[in-house]
Design a protein around this nucleic acid. Structure first.
Lengths: 243, 243
DNA sequence: ACAGTTTTTTCGGCATGCCTAAATTTATCG
DNA sequence: CGATAAATTTAGGCATGCCGAAAAAACTGT
């Protein structure tokens, strides 16, 4: 056993370790399949070989589970750490928007850096100051201090069949430009959506969106339609591409 | 010339570089002598050899001026960077105390970490939110966004002669335990002080302190008396040890 | 001024995390 | 099945910052 306490509670690990663990976790937050090495490399912007190395380290640290040549999964310990990081990230984003008047699309990168630096004390005081929020500005659920999250049932707009109606529960924050576009189109969290259909040959998705009565029809490209997650009005929202 | 723009404005440098520059600067903020290698090593908690290396790098980066075997000084560029870091540190401390209810003695370490991570945007928004403060919770002056500071005329209580009276302008934040002691003794910023004298054989300094009318006499050990800086009521406060 | 002490610098080494290039394993398809 | 393609891992290197030990320079006191 390396210089590693029995159950390191949340003794973090380096910023890199935290990043890896968070990405591994996030990959399965709204989907299911565990992440592969190259997907990890992609999301982290590092070479595949770096991932191999680091994953070995994560396994040594007891944070990940990994059979050579197969997907990477988190141990309970790893998931705890990941959830702590996700909590940090989302609370920081909420803080930046609510207290420092950051725009929607500006918060991600700043939070990405800060999450490795702030102390647990900082995070808990922040949470208190913000009124113990459960959802961040993009609609992502904020785990509580013990690592409990509830992940709302939601589907990407891109995979919903025509006719579906629902509410936008979450908007992926991974592309700031896309967030600016959505903001310009006045599409926001909790807006109503109705899927009208899809233009032929993989064309844009046509939807009707809007807050309250003010709704309008518009075309959404694939990236936009994938970034929008909707909580369907139909209880058992089937969706075409569900495999 | 290394991969270094002409006048990198404030393109920071690594956290280490920032720390070195800040310590070099801080050393002369209230005194005058430039800092020596071993003093630098001491304050940074690193080996002398590490300092030699890093100082060479600082010179390469155009941040420091250094003749072998003599003290280290900052270039204009280095001073700019140092002031930016000091600004960050002090604004962060102010924020932690005012907005997140940190105690006086808890803020230093957290700010020390955060100052390397937050963006300029963050700092400017924070400054606005706090109402553009000029003094941090320990009384240290906060440089403005352009790197202008005014450093109040102040002397360490430890070196003032008997009879001096003044106001506590600044309380060094380098020792949290000492801050807790002072807080327990109810000694705070802007309190009035009168130096009564010094007990024999390098004994404690006897002072009379207090807010408004509620003042009392007490003995202060050398460390405490050195941490307290007072703005003297006498215009040309002479002091015994001034050399 | 010069022998001894102190300060500073130089010299290899180490750890972390990243890279490219070269194996190696796994997957795919005729 | 086997050849080729794709994914993964190993091997060797690089940069940053740190260290201890040893060499070099700078202060000391008599």
């Amino acid at each position: 056993m390396p210089p590693n306490k029995h159950s390191p509670a949340l003794s973090s690990g380096s910023a890199s370790v935290q990043d890896y663990v968070k990405v591994i976790y996030s990959f399965t937050e709204w989907q299911d399949e565990p992440i592969s090495s190259s997907q990890l490399a992609n999301r982290l912007g590092v070479a595949n070989s770096s991932v191999s190395e680091m994953v070995r380290k994560l396994v040594e640290l007891g944070l990940a589970i990994h059979e050579p040549y197969s997907a990477v999964e988190l141990s309970d310990e790893g998931r705890r750490l990941a959830l702590a990081m996700v909590r940090r990230h989302r609370l920081l984003e909420t803080f930046l928007v609510q207290e420092l008047d950051y725009a929607w699309d500006e918060v991600h990168d700043e939070a990405e850096l800060l999450e490795h630096t702030v102390s647990d004390t900082f995070i808990e005081r922040l949470s208190a100051k913000l009124g113990y929020p459960h959802r961040d500005p993009h609609g992502d659920p904020i785990p509580d201090a013990h690592g409990t999250v509830d992940i709302p049932q939601a589907h990407q707009l891109a995979i919903l069949d025509a006719g579906h109606t629902g509410r936008i529960t979450r908007i992926s924050d991974s592309n700031p430009a896309l967030l600016r576009f959505l903001s310009a189109e006045d599409i926001g969290l909790d807006d109503h959506v109705e899927v009208i259909g899809r233009k032929p040959f993989g064309g844009p998705v046509v939807v009707r969106v809007g807050t309250a009565g003010r709704d309008r029809e518009l075309d959404l490209g694939d990236e936009a339609a994938s970034a929008l997650w909707v909580f369907s009005d139909k209880p058992h929202a089937g969706c075409a591409l569900a495999t």
